[in-house]
Structures are given as C-alpha cells and as structure tokens.
C-alpha cells in the first residue's frame, strides 16, 4: 500500500518538475522584452481608452510616450495638462502643453428657428441621413439631430435636447477627446479653447450658403454680413465662404460681435448676464436680420465668392 503511495507521489513530483522545466525553457525562448515604464505610464494615464490622443487606447499612447524622445506632439485630452506633466516628470521629458479644450456644437438651428421641410424616416443615424440628402430642414449644413455624436461620446458629456433638437455639451464632463468631432458627418462640432472661467464666444453656424438662402433656411444662420468682423477690435473674426469664424486664440472675449450679430449666430457661453439688455429678449427680434440681408455690399461680395467657389468646384472634380 505504502509503495503505491510513494510511487504516486514520486511520479507526480517528477511530472511537476518536468513541466516546470519545459515551461521555464519555453518562457526563456519566447520572452518578450518590454519596457516596464510602459506599464507605469499606462497607470498614470486615465485609462479611458477613448482614442482621443490618436493612438489605439491608453497603452498605445503609453508606448509612444516611452519610445519617442520628443513627446511634444502627444497629448491626452482626457487627463489634460496635469496628467501629461506627471508622465513627463516620470519619463524625464519635457511636458507638452495644451490649452484645455471643449467640444462646441456649431449649430443653433433649433426647431423653432429652423422649420422642418420634410420628415426623415430612415435609420436613426446622422451618417445615414447625411449620405442620403440635405436633411429635414432647408439647411444642408446644420445638425441632423439623430445623435451620432451622443452615441460616440464615452463620457456622457453629450445629450440631445428634445426641445431644440440639438445636442448639448456638458463642459464639465467633456474631455475633448474628439470622438464626437469624428462622428459628426456635417463637421459641426469643433474643439475650441475652453477659455478663462469657461467663457467662450463662437459662431454657432456652419452654413456656407449665401446670406439670403441661409437666412431663409434658418433664422439663426450666419448670413456673412461681416458686421462682426468689422466690429472686432482684435481681428479675430474672418468671413470666408459666406461664413464668419472666430479664432479662439485671438478672441479676447469682449463680446462686441455678440451684440452686433443680426441673427444671433454668435453665441457667448458662461458670461454673467448683461444688465441693460438681456440677450434672451433680443433674440426674438428678427428685423435686424432682414436689414442685413439687403445690405448692398454684402450681396455683391457674396455673389462673387460663390461664383468663384462654384467654378473651383467644377474644376476640382476633373
């Protein structure tokens, strides 16, 4: 009996040793040398795996951070400056610096301002709708309202406002990873400088049609009247392709353009309300807009640019 027991124990031990030996040699043979710092850097990164940095997940960025000497072009939008500083300190490299950013929805065409001209009944995906046609309203540039951006957001920072039919960004939750920017087929969403005290001024429209056409489709459209550019003391506003654009780095947040814009396409965020004229009351007033449309110099200039653009488009397609 004891013999059987002994034999069993010995056999098992021998087997164990044999297996250990095999495993040892195999492990030696197939050993993958990896920089242990990659693991540590990955630990510092937020672990959201959103791809906002342009690398496949946090590990991808960690690898790139460890392997490249110059990490000035790499930035984790989720972790922001603090995380990048920690990583740079750990690796002994100079930290890339970037202003904190936030996603901004550049369309103000809520249901009341942008009348629906037809009903979309396809798959509820902006990408599908955009590839099909101009959309439910007369504006072929504005938000389609199917919420591809909301679905793309990993941080719950976007939601559809059922009243306006437009998405809204929760600036607290937004990490500026850029997933929504990539998801939007109309290229409405832009990552902009978060600004001091989260205060921002931007043109909430991407319509490149001539003023009259844009205005007809949407009351809140930029009609490219150019008043904002004229009034801007810092030269931060350019009007190109029938559309005004505010450079967030030049903008000093004086808000002169906001007051000037006849269609209220320029939006201010997180400013305390002005005392004299509350901006909400002013928005209802549409008479300014009509005046701007018939301003003669605007129309002439717009005609020229669009004809040139059309000719250019035709040539490009050759």
């Amino acid at each position: 009996m004891s013999e059987t027991l002994l034999f069993t124990i010995l056999a098992l031990c021998a087997l164990g040793v044999l297996a250990a030996l095999i495993l040892y040699f195999v492990a030696q043979k197939f050993k993958v040398l990896e920089d242990p710092r990659i693991d540590n850097v990955e630990g510092i990164l937020p672990g959201a795996n959103c791809g906002g940095c342009g690398y496949p997940g946090c590990r991808g960025l960690a690898e790139a951070l460890v392997k490249n000497d110059d990490i000035s072009q790499m930035f984790c939008p989720v972790g922001g400056g603090a995380t990048m500083k920690a990583v740079a300190e750990y690796l002994g490299k100079s930290a890339p610096e970037k202003e904190p950013q936030v996603a901004e929805i550049r369309c103000n065409g809520s249901c009341d301002k942008r009348p629906r001209t037809n009903i979309y009944d396809g798959a509820s995906s902006c990408a599908v709708a955009a590839s099909l046609y101009a959309g439910e309203t007369g504006c072929s540039y504005g938000c389609l309202g199917c919420g591809d951006c909301v679905a793309a957001c990993n941080f719950g920072a976007l939601r559809m406002n059922p009243e306006t039919g437009l998405p809204e960004v929760d600036a607290e939750k937004c990490t500026a990873c850029g997933a929504c920017v990539r998801a939007c087929p109309r290229m409405i969403i832009e990552l902009r400088k978060k600004g001091p005290k989260n205060r921002r001024v931007y043109v909430s429209c991407v319509n490149k049609e001539k003023g009259a056409i844009a205005r007809k489709a949407c009351q809140a459209a930029c009609i490219a009247c150019g008043k904002c550019a004229k009034v801007c003391p810092f030269g931060a506003i350019v009007v190109e392709n029938n559309l005004a654009y505010i450079d967030s780095f030049k903008c000093k947040l004086c808000r002169k353009c906001v007051a000037e814009c006849p269609t209220h396409a320029i939006v201010e965020v997180n400013f305390p309300p002005k005392k004299e004229i509350p901006p909400v009351a002013e928005k209802k007033d549409a008479t300014d807009a009509k005046d701007a449309v018939v301003a003669p110099e605007t129309v002439i200039r717009n005609d020229n640019t669009s004809a040139a653009a059309m000719a250019g488009k035709i040539e490009n397609n050759d």
Binding site: R116, I119, Y120, D121, G122, V128, L132, Y133
Partner: peptide, 8 residues
C-alpha cells in the same frame, strides 16, 4: 403634410 424621406 410634409414629405417623408428615407433611404431605399
């Protein structure tokens, strides 16, 4: 009544 639009 508004027209309905959907893909084929």
């Amino acid at each position: 009544n508004k027209l309905i639009v959907s893909p084929s």
